[in-house]
């Protein structure tokens, strides 16, 4: 028995291993934003590993403004019934009751998301209190580790959602990877100060320094609109991608969705990438992140 990883105990649900393990199964895959059951089916047909059920894609949230909240349970339920792949849904930052409702609906993952209007400008949700796992956004390593401390079982680097501009996603993925590499290069006695600077618990910082990776899966999100965008994020170290407005705001969603799936699997093979990038029709109309006034930048929500 000495080789067993854990003592054999009674059946347990909602453990960190089960929550983090669920994200491990999504690796190398594409998670697509959908607003209807029909779109969810198109996403599943295209090879999505999961869908994110929401009322408006980020591009529309941006265009229409107003307070953006958790989706209607009827709509989420319709999507759960329509597909056999995992269904995720978004709760507002800090809105633990929206998260309770999503858990009761049986969603497979809750995204505590800056794309919705925050409900609490000081606290995020205590994610340990839930059986359902959570994914949270991060722009840097400290933010990622604070979310993991609160119980996030998966991290996605933030981009600027609803823009079709991949530059922010690139910046944040590079930032997180760079900070991990820096930790790996530090002598152990400097990790205490590193933890202070990152505003993250020492034990987690030490673990990242030793393993050279986050203790949870790292995806990327925000502004990904083409197969090349997805493949670049994978080459930069993402373990999978979220695509929001990029698919269903484009000319031919089914074809573009399938192409992004293929590009994610063969992200390191330019011949495959060239092939799947052909004949996709119009990409979503983009907005340059630089042209968005500071208060309207979603990636800056969360702390």
């Amino acid at each position: 028995m000495s080789e067993s990883a854990a003592p054999t105990t009674a059946t347990a649900v909602g453990t960190a291993r089960v929550k983090r393990g669920m994200a491990e199964m999504l690796k190398g895959g594409v998670i697509m934003d959908v607003v209807t059951a029909e779109q969810a089916k198109i996403a599943e047909d295209a090879g999505a590993v999961a869908v994110m059920a929401l009322e408006r894609v980020p591009a529309d949230i941006r265009a229409q403004g107003g307070v953006s909240r958790m989706s209607d349970p009827d709509m989420i339920d319709g999507i759960i019934q329509a597909v056999s792949i995992p269904v995720m849904a978004k709760a507002r930052i800090g809105h633990f009751v929206e998260a309770q409702i999503l858990q009761a609906l049986g969603v497979d993952y809750v995204d505590e998301s800056e794309v919705l209007t925050p409900a609490d400008y000081a606290n995020h949700i205590d994610k340990w209190a839930f059986t359902v796992p959570f994914v949270c956004g991060a722009t840097n390593l400290g933010e990622a580790l604070r979310r993991i401390t609160e119980g996030a079982a998966m991290i996605r680097s933030k981009g600027e959602a609803g823009t079709g501009d991949v530059s922010n996603a690139t910046t944040h993925m590079r930032q997180i990877r760079q900070e991990i590499r820096r930790l790996q290069s530090l002598p152990s006695d400097e990790l205490y100060v590193a933890a202070k600077e990152l505003q993250a618990p020492y034990e987690l910082v030490k673990e990242v320094a030793e393993q050279g990776k986050l203790p949870v899966v790292l995806f990327t999100a925000g502004g990904i609109a083409t197969p090349a965008d997805a493949a670049m994020m994978m080459q930069l170290g993402a373990e999978g991608v979220f695509v929001g407005s990029g698919i269903f705001k484009s000319g031919n969603p089914a074809q573009r969705a399938a192409a992004i799936v293929k590009a994610t699997t063969f992200h390191d093979d330019p011949d495959v990438l060239a092939k799947v990038s052909r004949g996709l029709g119009e990409a979503m109309v983009g907005i340059n992140v630089d042209e968005i006034p500071q208060p309207h930048r979603l990636a800056e929500r969360g702390w």
Partner: peptide, 9 residues
């Protein structure tokens, strides 16, 4: 669903 995922001997 995922909320029913579990560990057991």
């Amino acid at each position: 669903r995922q909320v029913d995922s579990f560990e057991a001997p």
